[in-house]
Amino acid sequence: MFLAIDIGNTDSTIGYFRDRLLRDTIRIQSRTSTIDEIGTMIVGFLEKQHGLKTEILGVGISSVVPDLTKLYCSMVKKYLRAEPKILDHNLIVDFRVLYDDAAQLGTDRLANVIAARKLYGYPVLVIDLGTATKYEIIDNNGDYLGGLIAPGIWTGAQALFEKGARLFPVKLEEPEKLIGTNTIGALQSGIFHGFLGQLVYLKERIGRELGYPNLKVVGTGGYVELFKDYPGLFNDVDPGLTLKGIEIALNR
């Protein structure tokens, strides 16, 4: 049994693998938990929901929050009695990372690249819809070219709510009509369709720039469910892509 841990800015996601297949996940708020709270939740997840003892054969961690990396490592040692492996760009040996400074590349992005190459082939574009929206491009040789980072849909919406004196938070969903006839409808339409426009435009622009008119696109991340059914946007939707990349890289 292998446990993959993806520590993000908003949430941390833990994936349980058996026979190299992702069986289940649990999500924990990143910045509101102690070692004991996290350990208790994970042990409960494994034992109560799956009837498993905490006999972990391996644990892999990807983290974009350095101060939480140590906390999770301590939790793994205390509660799971395992020595965690940390995903790092230096582990990549089977393809080139063409980033100016690979050390600056977030390991969640790296995990997405690793998983997409292996599971979906290349060339491929990965779009990860989370706190930030990240676009990762893998060319027809399987090398990682780089990507784009934009505000996530909720991150951008929150900034709008905070800066607009007469605006207020609304539910993130596709409204019934494009043109809003009240403030709620106008906000929902602008947020949803504005973000969708970004996705559609950048998908087309990246494919055109690279000369890949039929570039395969894989969607992942916490907000991918909002857009997964939009015609022609994604070839595949894989919410567990980052966890799968951690497992592929570190379960050796």
Rank of each mutant, 00 (worst) to 15 (best):
Y122K: 05
L178K: 12
I138G: 03
N235I: 05
G190V: 10
P213M: 13
R23H: 10
V217T: 06
G58C: 09
I179H: 05
I179F: 09
I179K: 04
T34L: 07
I26Q: 09
S62H: 05
P239I: 06
E55T: 12
I246V: 15
V200E: 13
K48Q: 15
G240M: 10
I38N: 11
L145E: 03
P213D: 13
N214S: 12
A186Q: 06
L172V: 08
A159V: 11
A115D: 10
L167R: 06
P84D: 11
R208W: 09
Y201P: 00
Y135D: 02
I184C: 07
S12F: 09
G130A: 15
T155H: 12
L172N: 05
V59W: 08
A115R: 08
R117P: 09
L199T: 04
K228Q: 15
V64Q: 14
E136N: 14
A82N: 13
I14A: 07
V64F: 07
L129W: 03
R23P: 01
G240R: 13
V170N: 06
V200D: 06
I61W: 03
Y230Q: 05
D36K: 08
V170A: 04
T131A: 03
Y230A: 00
I137S: 00
G156W: 04
L196N: 04
R252C: 07
L178Q: 11
H50K: 15
D236V: 14
L91E: 12
M75E: 09
N140W: 01
F95I: 10
D67S: 10
K118T: 15
R23T: 13
R205V: 08
L215P: 00
V200R: 13
R31S: 15
D108N: 02
K177T: 15
K177A: 14
Y230D: 04
F234R: 01
L250M: 07
L98E: 14
M1T: 14
Y223C: 01
L21Y: 10
G194H: 11
Y72T: 12
Y144N: 11
K163A: 11
A132V: 02
S62F: 01
D67T: 15
A157F: 14
G146M: 06
I184N: 05
G15C: 06
L52D: 08
Q29S: 12
L22Y: 10
R205E: 15
D143P: 10
I138S: 05
S63G: 02
G58F: 02
I191D: 03
R109Q: 05
E204M: 04
G232D: 02
I26M: 14
N141L: 12
T220S: 14
V97P: 01
K203E: 09
Y16S: 15
I61C: 03
I153L: 12
S63F: 13
R23I: 11
R20A: 10
Q198T: 05
D229C: 11
R18T: 13
T133V: 10
I153R: 01
R205M: 14
L148I: 13
T181F: 05
D143Y: 11
F95A: 01
Y122F: 15
P84F: 08
